[in-house]
Design a protein around this nucleic acid. Sequence first.
DNA 1: GCTTCTTAGTGTAATTTTGACACTATGAAC
DNA 2: GTTCATAGTGTCAAAATTACACTAAGAAGC
Lengths: 229, 229
Amino acid sequence: MSFTYDYPRPAVTVDCVVFGLQEQRLRVLLIRRGRPPFEGQWALPGGFVDMDEDLEASARRELQEETGLRDIFLEQLYTFGMPGRDPRGRTISVAYYALVNTVNHPPRADDDAAEAEWVDVDRARTLAFDHDEILATALARLRGKVRYQPIGFELLPRKFTLSQLQQLYEVILERELDKRNFRRRILAMDLLVELDEKQQDVSHRAARLYRFDKRKYRSLEESGFVFEL
Amino acid sequence: MSFTYDYPRPAVTVDCVVFGLQEQRLRVLLIRRGRPPFEGQWALPGGFVDMDEDLEASARRELQEETGLRDIFLEQLYTFGMPGRDPRGRTISVAYYALVNTVNHPPRADDDAAEAEWVDVDRARTLAFDHDEILATALARLRGKVRYQPIGFELLPRKFTLSQLQQLYEVILERELDKRNFRRRILAMDLLVELDEKQQDVSHRAARLYRFDKRKYRSLEESGFVFEL
DNA sequence: GCTTCTTAGTGTAATTTTGACACTATGAAC
DNA sequence: GTTCATAGTGTCAAAATTACACTAAGAAGC
């Protein structure tokens, strides 16, 4: 079967930059390509957009197919369309970035992807296509956005300690934060719920657990509150 | 002539939300469509992406063709691809937003566009396609971005007074600012060059003119400075 | 069970930043 | 020379930010 048009059309794909946190390092989920072009090279998960499918739905479908991830934070990043970025012909890629708690989401290769793996963002290099550039764009976006939108929580388990939260911000922003000042700030926003629970299985004093109250955030947001770290 | 592919492909377009300032109001440049679909309705300038042309180049070409605008601030906004957004069939639109000093850029209808006009952003409604949504997205982006990137200057003439700058921010952010505090802040950033010139042809005390020093901004930016209003 | 080790958790004082606020200066028009 | 419109300027109180160091808890090892 084939499809004919009066004017030439580019192919349209989606690619996803999935960030996760492992061992105090920021990671990105890559797949090893199982077919040409760039067979055997690391690449971002992604694929062609179906004709009757919304762009975000495409991204979610490809993620599920190639890595098993579903129901995660996903947001459009940027659209890359430089002629020549795909050797198969003109291809426009709508890139998304996603944040997951990697403990809940072990990688899993599937379908076209030969292999899926969490890679340290600083070590992910020479990816297929222009995926280095897409990754760099996603990193810049994450570093910018994390400061004025409470998206960092998406990288942590539902229950977390304040130290974990602080480490998260330190890893993303690449600078150290003062413990007391950090706690004062984040608690003053009144977005965290203090739980009646403590960390388990640590060989030192166990820290109190908190969770992020997304509903409270949404309602504060409506009354003009802006998250800012 | 026709073009055939093994799989169906969406059409890809670019659309531009061009903002300008006129009579202390924020305006958007619209064209009246000269052909179906939505013939006669107001729409954003835009059109189909050529096969060998970068996305931003497409946006600039369409802007020039339809409105005569060139060499302006232009940045990618978001990509809209909901099935059904174009009655002619699946169409994905990469939207850009632009900022111009409207004094230098009078509208001019051209080519496919029957008419081009600056419309008050609050009065622009029931545009063709999903252009209402694109405009709303662009407005939100402008309001967000103007606070932490010095892009507002793109809407003013090269030489401007501090009062004009303040009004600009008041219009975009939709709130009043204190004159003395505004001046203190903006001058403290050391991004404006005080010129040896005053306003001409005003029937009251003439204000000093300033210009934005983009080079200084870039160098401060590199050393970690962040613009913030 | 005592010591050690590791991380949790807490307060204050100095400095800086913010926000509120009102009058004089200049220059054109009448 | 009076009127009118906008330009331009400083201070003080309150709030926010920064820098900074010790005690508390609990598991591990002896």
